Computed example of a mutant assay.
Amino acid sequence: MSQDQARAGGLFITFEGIDGSGKSTQSRRLADSLRAKGRDVVLTREPGGSPGAEEIRALVLEGDPDRWSAETEILLFTAARRDHLERTILPALAAGKVVICDRFADSTRVYQGVSRGDLRGMVDQLHALMIGREPDLTLLIDMDPDTGHTRALARKGHEERFEDFGPDLQRRMRAAFLGLAQEFPARVRVIDGNRGIDEVAADVGATVHEALA
């Protein structure tokens, strides 16, 4: 994609990875770097990123780990994503902006579609029906599951419902994310997250620069 094409039609970049992988930090670092270079950037997240989606975020990320079934979670996440897409992502892309999103549909494919039940087909059907949009580039921050789980539990805040499922879920999620990288090699790039923040950021920056070139 040329720089003129990126400006004209925008560029949709997502960060994925297990809890504690550092993807949120790297998404902020990338947004700051691109803004410093004169890019118009929208930094957002899922679930959330629009007023309605943020309300759904509170429903799905807080409370008892068994609060919702996997099927109900898929519906809630899809509803949040649809609102996010309509109100934040698509308008920004139409304006030629770079949209950087901390998690998107790949997280639903992994969390609800693989790690919490064999529901990938349901996830993909709802995605095709209600979302119909994939990122232009997905940066998968790959992290040792035990390290990621320890980091996730050390964070302050109350959005701990999925972290409470334990380290075994983290290991299954990592395998599923790496499987998505093989399934979608044209858009998913795996970045080694088991290094210092600056080293990871350098790899992220080089990968994005290639996509913008």
Rank of each mutant, 00 (worst) to 15 (best):
S2M: 10
Q5W: 15
A6G: 02
A8V: 12
G9A: 06
G17R: 00
G20W: 03
K23G: 06
Q26W: 11
L30P: 00
L30H: 03
A31N: 00
A31Y: 11
L34W: 07
A36M: 12
G38N: 10
G38R: 04
D40H: 15
V41W: 07
E46Q: 10
G48V: 02
S50W: 11
S50D: 00
G52F: 03
G52R: 15
G52T: 06
A53S: 03
A53R: 10
E54A: 06
E55W: 11
E55A: 13
I56G: 02
A58R: 14
L59Q: 09
L59D: 02
V60P: 00
S69K: 07
S69Q: 01
T72W: 08
A80N: 03
A80R: 14
A80Y: 07
R81W: 08
T88Q: 13
A92H: 04
L93F: 11
V98C: 05
V98H: 06
V99Q: 00
I100A: 07
R103T: 01
R103I: 11
F104H: 06
R109F: 15
V114Q: 04
V114I: 08
V114M: 10
S115M: 09
S115H: 01
R116P: 03
G117M: 02
L119M: 01
M122D: 12
M122R: 07
D124S: 13
A128E: 12
L129Y: 11
I131W: 01
G132F: 10
E134N: 14
E134H: 14
D136R: 07
L137S: 00
T138F: 01
L140D: 01
I141P: 11
D146V: 13
D146E: 03
G148A: 03
T150F: 11
A152I: 05
K156E: 14
K156T: 13
K156D: 15
G157K: 04
H158V: 14
R161S: 09
F162K: 12
F162Y: 05
E163M: 02
D164I: 13
F165M: 11
L169S: 15
L169M: 10
L169Y: 13
Q170Y: 14
Q170N: 05
R171A: 08
R172A: 15
M173I: 04
M173F: 03
A175V: 10
A176T: 00
A176W: 00
F177G: 00
L178S: 01
Q182A: 15
E183K: 15
E183L: 08
A186S: 09
A186F: 12
V188T: 08
G196V: 09
G196I: 07
E199F: 10
A201H: 06
H209L: 15
E210F: 07
E210K: 14
A211I: 14
L212S: 01
